[in-house]
Design a protein around this nucleic acid. Structure first.
Lengths: 116, 116
DNA sequence: ATAGTATGTCGTATATTTACGACATACATC
DNA sequence: GATGTATGTCGTAAATATACGACATACTAT
């Protein structure tokens, strides 16, 4: 067996992994859900809803913002974070494609060189 | 402002985050795609396709296996990893629901107490 | 101007992830 | 049985993520 490393990760794979990473913490999932529910969008209120310190929540917000999944608008003294709906729709499409392709066929079998 | 921490992360949020974490590395995304493409399913061949050592790939495989996203079947000297199609379909549904809910409404606005 | 409030950043401690060589195990083949 | 091969685990080093108190900044209100 040759063990040639033919593949480097594609931009597509890296992009999917990046977004997955952004959602890889329950706090960040919760933040997106909070914003979607329109319950609030103000930084401090978000922190108040989560069992974490304001500092930590701010850090999670920055992570989501770094990927442009949310955007912050300064409104006087407070900051309002809004979902980037368009990007989320795009990302939704990427995940859907990934999962559909992953679940399209029965896996393995003789084609792949195994008996299962 | 009271800063009462009313919410602890729900099982749903934790589940989504867990799966997202599993896909939060391009190598693991690539592994799922490789298995889906039926190109191969044998541990060593998977490692040969990726720009990582066999040890590291094995580690990534164990992570996917721990969440039951893939299953390993020993076939003599080799081990064949197969996608858990049913679980992937379930997960697909979870992600879809999450994204649909996140993108259903225009975010923010006066309801949420901000001006954007 | 002064005081108070909301927010982000810095510093830092701890935990987790990532990566890989070395080793152990288990099967196949000679 | 001895040898070779495929795989997983162990130990460990380095990088990254998580969490939070303390501080700095910027705006509001008195």
């Amino acid at each position: 067996m040759t063990y040639a490393k033919t593949t480097v990760f594609t931009e597509e794979q890296q992009q999917l992994a990046r977004i997955a990473k952004a959602l890889a913490h329950p706090a960040r999932v919760a933040i997106v859900q909070l914003l979607a529910a329109k319950k609030t969008c103000i930084s401090g209120d978000i922190a108040a809803e989560l069992p974490l310190s304001r500092t930590t929540v701010s850090q999670h917000l920055q992570e989501l913002k770094a990927l442009d999944l949310i955007r912050g608008e300064i409104d006087g003294l407070t900051v309002c974070y809004c979902l980037n709906i368009k990007l989320l729709q795009q990302v939704n499409q990427q995940f859907t494609t990934f999962f559909v392709e992953a679940t399209a066929n029965e896996p393995c079998g003789p084609d792949a060189g195994c008996a299962c």
